[in-house]
Design a protein around this nucleic acid. Sequence first.
DNA 1: CTTGCATCTGACAACGTTGTCCAGGCTCTA
DNA 2: TAGAGCCTGGACAACGTTGTCAGATGCAAG
Lengths: 328, 328
Amino acid sequence: MKDVAARAGVGLKTVSRVVNGEPGVTPDTERRVQEAIDALGFRRNDSARVLRKGRTASIGLVLEDLADPFYGPLSRAVEEVARAHGALLINGSSAEDPDREQELALALCARRVDGLVVIPAGDDHRYLEPEIRAGVATVFVDRPAGKIDADVVLSDNHGGARDGVAHLIAHGHRRIGFIGDMPRIHTAAERLRGYRAAMEDAGIPVEEAWTSLGVTDPERVRRAAEEMLSGPAPVTAVFAGNNRVTVTVIRVLAELSRPVALIGFDDIELADLLNPGITVVAQDAALLGRTAAERLFRQLDGTLLAPERIELPTRLITRGSGELPPAE
Amino acid sequence: MKDVAARAGVGLKTVSRVVNGEPGVTPDTERRVQEAIDALGFRRNDSARVLRKGRTASIGLVLEDLADPFYGPLSRAVEEVARAHGALLINGSSAEDPDREQELALALCARRVDGLVVIPAGDDHRYLEPEIRAGVATVFVDRPAGKIDADVVLSDNHGGARDGVAHLIAHGHRRIGFIGDMPRIHTAAERLRGYRAAMEDAGIPVEEAWTSLGVTDPERVRRAAEEMLSGPAPVTAVFAGNNRVTVTVIRVLAELSRPVALIGFDDIELADLLNPGITVVAQDAALLGRTAAERLFRQLDGTLLAPERIELPTRLITRGSGELPPAE
DNA sequence: CTTGCATCTGACAACGTTGTCCAGGCTCTA
DNA sequence: TAGAGCCTGGACAACGTTGTCAGATGCAAG
């Protein structure tokens, strides 16, 4: 900038004014400055700008795994909102590791992001308290914050799972399996709770062998499914706790000779083209992201609101697999 | 930091030393400083640090659409490499708009990212020349850079498409359709070229009605597919130019009474579970991202190398749909 | 006791930008 | 033509950090 000023033969501040489109510069001067900028290939150093102004016009997104098809649209939605507010998005994956989540979130704070959208991996977010006090806007998505009071945007995991399982019961099933992620993950726990609630509503006692928790890699999901599908009284329907589990279960069922009903949590691409189509409890990832981001910017606008818990409804999409009758 | 120094009763620089783990501080002093840091919830301001040091330890990723399942793993791979080098990843979507790509890339440069991984939307990247001269490491992925000399990491789009189409020919097809994206997109053009090459190798003249270019939204892809599948001499096989096209074509074929062979470029989740399974030419998105990122950091390490064009092989995965014989 | 050396500590400038404030030149009016 | 008021342009400090360098302190050896 100094160089530009020297070349244009004007003061430093005048260049600054031109760069920022501030008023109070003669067209002639502006032209000279602009020429110097072009000639030198000058680009304002935003780091210095941030240092001076305090705001960075960037927000951070901590999510679980960008490669998971569920988070792509969510991330994209956050980005679009950020863009509409002139902000950039910095993101990172926690890989479901609480330590890594914390490391990432704090690194983003050190970069002085204006706000933070966090998909929690851990269940204790007190480490963010100093940052929030220091003015970093914060919204949690998909899972609630742990041990601090903050904005949260969730899907109705409990209700969605309950409705899905009730749907299976309505189609005549009584022995229904549930395969889900580790219960320390909030969404997994809520979906399990929904499963149990639906069963209880129908007066069906849940047998130990019907639920499988904490399995996450395909090989173990496969074994879990095979187990509950064998024996003298196998389950006649399976409720899959997330998209990855659903995919694996589809594979297992495809190898089976008898039809087994299936409903999965989270929608899956091409689910309608399988035979039968896969019935799912769908959540709107993009809407989750958009809602969270908008709330973040409202915090930043100073339209300060008390922390709130927003729960978005899920949608049961029937495609065939969830409407299969029990095969006794 | 000033506050910390005051509270600990030491000089500014001493605090800096403690924060950065530099040697030359008595354990006793260090403890006092550490206490002050904890008490005040101090976190170093990386903006200032950047300003002083010149390096930001962050890299930018400009991609097409984070919601596209192809870019999720790619982005994640770049992130992992960045993380291994202690860098953060800032990313944004160009939405296939050259202006937006430029805006984004320059915004990242203004943030003084150390390097830039770009999935080009436009075909003229001379706007990056001043930045590259200023020391911003740059690697292009998935599509080549336009009008500048830079590192490029690509899939073998031409060869992959040629092999795929040759596979169809080998199974007896002669009337083979091609549905692809706008030819101004390099990958689309290369795949089209591959299609034509395979046909020419087999001595099959390509009829106008068999190729459909530039269609991208599902509705128009559908119409294009229906068109080439009707008439007196419909195509007996379709080569789909990318994952989104493939999905739409699968839907169209599912409504058809006669079997039509299909091979798609890019792998699709669940492709093996459809009936028939979908044969695809798969590229390794994660490997693309990893290769590009590693090359970026080698530029930054100063292991300076001449710009290079790296082409990664594709893989034909046969699952059934590509092996259907022509239904005459 | 003095000197020399090693170790630890702090004052200061600089990074590149922007906000504040003032100077100088201009126009307009009396 | 002089004074008031407006507009443009520039000097300077400040943002929070780190590199440089010199001063202070302590200890050992002469």
